[in-house]
Amino acid sequence: MNIKFIMRFHDNTPSGGRKIVYEYMNYLVNKGNNISLCFVANTSFKTRKYNHLLYIKYYLDYLKRKKGQSQIDWFKLNSKIKIETRFSIDSSIADTDNQIIFAFDYGIALSIYDHLTNIRNCVYMIQHDERVYYDKNVIRQAWRLPMKKIVISTWLYKLVNSVDPGNVILVKNYVDLDTFYLTKPIEQRMKTVSLISHPNPYKGTKVGREALSLVKEQVPELRVIMFGTQPSPTDLPDYYEYYQMANESILREKVYNQSSVYLLPSVLEGWGLTATEAMSCGCALVSTKNGGVEDFGVDNYSALLCDVNNTKDISKKIISLLNDSSFRVKIANNGLEMVKSMNFLDSAQLFENVLYEINHSH
């Protein structure tokens, strides 16, 4: 197959959503497929507000950052994958008539629809309820486009299928079990909780920190390990440790395997990649009922679930695990067994089959 993946410009920092797609690309090129990756600075579409102003903004950004787009330091992309950089999407984006065009998000999908006359070979991957990034009406407009949609979780499948029935395929995310695994016995963990620091309010970092302050009042020996792509917040208490731009080895050894509990306090979550990584390293999961957690967080079995933004409930669930080692170990072991079934090869083969069917359906 001949497949072109289209993404927006990147800033060379780790991204869970991009990582999933990069790994699929490596898999596909190793299977003998012709894979290319196109980074686009400007994804204009008819219903985008301030198109003319954004054109200027993104053109300046294109001139400034186009040379750096071929450099991805945090992920090893197969050298056989051709990388190209464009200012915007136009009718020449497809190299051949039978090339599959893969849209990474709503803006790319809408821009492709506006500029290509033939979208039969187009597929649009949805990794979140994208209204967390843009106007809900525009997002639903993108979801109704007459192109196949791939979604990564059960709750997203239900949501997108309600907007565009019968045109949605579920390819669940996976856990990289060769990278994230136990190195420290679950029974020997200290009273340590880890979580991600993220600037998007939907990730719930503020709520998570507020809940952990309540935990500290009841569990004085609490330690917190935080990580993120941004510099360390300046107001972190002294019982916090922070890792910026942590690579997979640091996440496995210094974060997940040092933690008894992993906290996922998101308002909405497409999947929750860090949660499944932490579970595969032996953390007991405490999570809000954020959508994505449904595929791996079964309440009181593989996780403890809380209402969104409920700091008291979140803190209560964390305390129950930290103060009852046998309960924590039980939840952690159940979670570990659950995520072990979410292997890369199963997801990659299903992803390949979806693209194959699109390629041979016309």
Results as ranks from 00 to 15, higher is better:
D105N: 13
D61V: 02
L54K: 09
R65F: 15
V29P: 09
N78E: 02
I89P: 13
Y50A: 13
I35D: 07
C38D: 05
L28T: 04
K66S: 14
A41C: 01
M25V: 08
Y55A: 09
D105E: 13
K66W: 12
A109G: 05
T85C: 10
N33W: 07
A41L: 04
L53A: 07
T96I: 03
I56F: 06
I108S: 07
S44V: 12
I35W: 02
W74K: 01
A41D: 03
S70Y: 14
N78G: 04
K64P: 03
R65G: 12
N30P: 06
I35H: 04
Y106F: 15
Y106H: 08
A94N: 07
N78T: 06
D73C: 02
I35K: 01
I35L: 01
F104Y: 10
G68F: 07
Y106W: 05
Y62M: 07
L28K: 00
I108N: 05
R65V: 03
K80C: 11
N51K: 11
V29F: 03
N98S: 15
D95F: 00
Y62C: 00
K80Y: 05
S79H: 13
I89F: 10
K57T: 07
V21L: 09
F87L: 04
N30L: 08
S92E: 14
G107S: 12
T43W: 11
Y58W: 13
K49Y: 14
N33M: 12
S92Y: 05
K66E: 07
F87E: 00
W74D: 13
N30V: 10
Q99V: 15
F39G: 04
Y22P: 08
S44F: 10
G107E: 14
S36W: 03
N30R: 12
N51A: 11
S70F: 08
N42P: 02
R86F: 04
N26P: 03
S88A: 15
F87K: 01
Y55F: 15
I81C: 04
D95C: 06
R86D: 06
N42L: 10
I56Q: 03
S91E: 15
S70K: 13
M25F: 09
S70E: 15
F87T: 01
A109V: 10
N26R: 00
T47P: 02
E23T: 15
N51Y: 04
S92Q: 11
D105Y: 06
S79T: 12
L28E: 09
D90M: 02
S44P: 02
V40I: 13
K67Q: 14
I100H: 12
Y50K: 11
L63S: 01
W74A: 13
I81M: 07
K49S: 12
W74S: 07
I72W: 06
I81G: 01
N51F: 00
H52R: 10
S88P: 03
T43P: 04
R48W: 05
S44K: 07
N78L: 00
E23I: 02
M25Y: 02
A103K: 07
K67E: 15
T43Q: 11
Y59H: 09
L37E: 03
